[in-house]
């Protein structure tokens, strides 16, 4: 009878975690049904099975089989590494988490697997916000949790960063952290990290000096060179609808048929200007005068004559 891959993998995990000593590949071949008789095919399939187990998060320990001569590599799974009771969640908490995992998740299968590990089937949803996965995300996530300093290449430069915040916004993942080379806070797009991120030992990253909630990707809130200032900005009714979506927690000064006025704390003047100009005539800085002057000067820098002669 044919033994499926699934049966073989469960059987393999069972035999390996139950064994008091490392087992050789040949011993496993004898105890786990479903491996081919041909030696080369067996080796290939055994390698694939090991990879699959690792992908499942199973830690395969390798050690020499005791008393083997010549020495033979053996395999074992430490049961303490294989199993871990999950957080004790109430039924309503499990259900809420399952719903959340159904509507928001990575493009892969990780949230479904995670829900099974919590003992329930992930709820299915017809609509789902798919988040791009990135091979460096797990490392960055671990680094934030364990306060590890990370190293990667970004814009052709080696970076050494204390990671503070990972954010998904506008369809992309970003990391915010203290860039030690620059001595300043920086945001990085994760997909642009051109090397595999490496993380130092736990506890090697210093905590952030600013509250995490202030580290946002909003263009006006990015780390800037000026003291932060409060700005009032007007949007016409057409742009206002989008602003309401984009900034649900906005500090609204007024809203009527003439448009929407909101208050923003501007840390980065360039980011603020660039963002506001994307609304063209549909937005205007109302105050403070300093920021209005900035905007006016920027716009007056465009000369019709200069463009025509170029």
């Amino acid at each position: 009878m044919t033994v499926s891959r699934l049966e073989r993998l469960i059987s393999l995990m069972n035999v390996l975690h139950d064994s008091p000593r490392p087992l050789s590949a040949q011993e496993l071949r004898g105890r786990v049904s479903g491996y081919p008789d041909n030696d080369a095919s067996f080796r290939r399939q055994f390698e694939r099975d090991k990879d699959e187990l690792r992908e499942l998060g199973v830690v395969l320990e390798m050690a020499t089989v005791p008393a083997s001569d010549p020495p033979v590599t053996g395999y074992r799974i430490d049961p303490r590494q294989l199993f871990a009771p999950m957080a004790e969640l109430e039924a309503d908490e499990l259900e809420a988490l399952s719903m959340a995992a159904a509507v928001v998740g990575f493009t892969g299968d990780s949230s479904r697997r995670a829900m099974f590990k919590l003992g329930v089937s992930a709820t299915t949803a017809t609509r789902r916000a798919e988040l791009a996965d990135d091979p460096n995300l797990e490392t960055l996530f671990s680094a934030v949790i364990d306060r590890r300093r990370v190293r990667f290449v970004y814009r052709d430069e080696q970076r050494e960063v204390d990671p503070y915040r990972i954010q998904f916004a506008r369809g992309r993942w970003y990391l915010c952290g203290m860039d030690h080379g620059r001595g300043a806070l920086r945001w990085y797009r994760v997909s642009r990290m051109s090397t595999q991120v490496s993380a130092d030992a736990p506890g090697t990253s210093d905590p952030p000096s600013a509250p995490l909630s202030e580290l946002t990707l909003d263009p006006w809130a990015l780390p800037g060179d000026h003291a932060p200032m409060e700005a009032e900005v007007w949007f016409d009714p057409v742009a206002a609808a989008g602003i309401r979506d984009e900034l649900p927690g906005a500090d609204v000064v007024s809203e009527d048929a003439s448009g929407l006025v909101i208050r923003l704390k501007v840390h980065n003047r360039e980011g603020f200007r660039s963002w506001l100009l994307s609304f063209l005539d549909r937005a205007e800085v109302l105050s403070p005068p300093d920021l209005r002057d900035d905007m006016a000067k920027w716009l007056e820098g465009f000369s019709v004559d200069a463009r025509r002669s170029s």
Binding site: M13, N14, L97, A100, A114, L118, A129
Partner: peptide, 24 residues
């Protein structure tokens, strides 16, 4: 007779749950 507890979650799986919950 075995597998009485769930398998340990990988960091990727933890991240997936965390992200789903944080999104909402």
């Amino acid at each position: 007779l075995s597998f009485r507890q769930p398998l340990r979650m990988t960091r990727g799986e933890q991240l997936a749950l965390f992200v789903a919950a944080r999104a909402l």
